[in-house]
Each structure stands twice: as structure tokens, then as C-alpha cells.
Design a protein around this nucleic acid. Structure first.
Lengths: 104, 104
DNA sequence: TGAATATATAAGTCTTAGCTTATATGCTAT
DNA sequence: ATAGCATATAAGCTAAGACTTATATATTCA
């Protein structure tokens, strides 16, 4: 891994919004609308953050009907390192909507 | 540790220049003029990078005569984590000047 | 003291990143 | 098919960051 690649990885996870999103996904897969209750930013902002994380293969996504569920990619080469970092963060409060059994 | 603090830490180490500087210091303490041979940037740029690292207590510095020697702070709370990251980087070529036994 | 060397600081430029609002697309169910 | 909800994309704004050059400060030594 060269310095430029490591910079890219660290910049992707080195954002307080994305860190909180990742921490929330540590518990279970969530859709954008659930993640949206976590941070005080717009829906497009959440979507953009998740796509940034996906472009580095740190998260995976999967459409289920109207919703797209996002999860941590435990096959990422630095998944263990990421876990170490997330351990240091407080567990966020997710207002996970109950309707339609979205949060399986 | 809150998300903002972790963001700060990751942004401080999440720069390809600073990563290479840190990797060089893994070997031994070095002064700005030696570190300057490592990267293709100006002397003030190196100085600014080192002060950014120092402001987060990732490195220490110590003046010895005309030179200021910089070293990794192995007492930093995330020193182990940093070591894990640096392991992934290639060892850089440092043109360490021999004069005056600077590189002890 | 003053020249030479090492480092730090100041100020300005340019790019990137994280947001916003507006709008488009995708899916479901009536 | 169309309304409604979930998500994505586009475009633009603003601030932060990584550099530059110019200059100031610190230290040594003749």
C-alpha cells in the first residue's frame, strides 16, 4: 500500500459524520432514512457519505424494495483496523423505524 | 473519544506527506533538513507538517544546537494503531547527512 | 559582531471536501 | 397510470487544507 492509497483510506474514514454512520452500522444494516435520524444533515448528504464509503469498499449496499440497506464490509482489508477505531466511539442513538420490519 | 476528536486525529495522519514523514521517523529521529530530502516540497511545508503532527502530540521535538530533532511520540494513546498503519507503508529513502554526527 | 545555516512564521493561491437546494430516478401500491 | 415515499444526482456555495514565496528568528562560529 502506498502513501497515496493510505491517505485516501484515512480521508474516507476521517470525517466525523462518516465515523458516526459507520459506528451505527456496526450494530446492524440500516437504510438511508434510518441513518438520516442520526445526523443533523440533509438526506443527500447522507447518501453522498455512504457512496464515498462504498467507493472505497468500506460498506456494501443492497436494495430491498424501496429501501437500500447499507452494511459494513467485513471483507475489507482493513476491517479489523476500522473495528479498533470504532470501539473508541460512543454508540449512537438510531431512531430505527419499526414499520414494515425494515430493520431486520 | 468523540467523533470530532477522532476526525481530527485521522485528518492529521491522513495525508500522504505526513505519512511518509512519520514512516521515516519510525527508523530514528530526524531534523527538518533531513526530512526535507524525503519529499519534493519546500522546507516550510515540512515544518508546517511537523507542527501539525506535534499539535496532536503524535511527534515530539527537541532542539540540539542549530537542529531540531523530531521523533515519534511512543506515549501517544494511539501509538500502537499508528504503528499498525505505518507497517503497511514502504520504507522511504532518507538522505541523512553525515556531517556533525547529526543522525545519532 | 556579523555571516552562514536551520527552522519558523506570515500571507497568499489553488484545490478539495462537505454541505446545501432543486430535481431526477426507482420502487410500491392504489 | 399515478401518487407517494426512498434514494440518487446535479449544481453551486463556503471553508479548510496543502502548498508556495518572502521574511523573521535562532544558533553557531569565525
Amino acid at each position: 500500500m502506498n502513501p497515496k492509497q493510505m491517505e485516501r483510506f484515512l480521508k474516507t474514514i476521517g470525517d466525523q459524520s462518516r465515523l458516526q454512520l459507520l459506528k451505527a452500522l456496526e450494530q446492524k444494516p440500516l437504510c438511508i432514512c434510518d441513518l438520516n435520524t442520526l445526523l443533523d444533515v440533509s438526506q443527500p448528504a447522507i447518501s453522498q457519505h455512504m457512496h464515498r464509503l462504498k467507493s472505497d469498499e468500506i460498506v456494501l449496499n443492497e436494495r430491498r424494495g424501496r429501501w437500500v440497506f447499507w452494511s459494513l464490509n467485513d471483507s475489507h482489508p482493513h476491517y479489523l483496523l476500522l473495528q479498533e477505531l470504532l470501539k473508541l466511539l460512543p454508540v449512537p442513538t438510531i431512531e430505527c423505524s419499526q414499520e414494515e420490519n425494515r430493520c431486520k
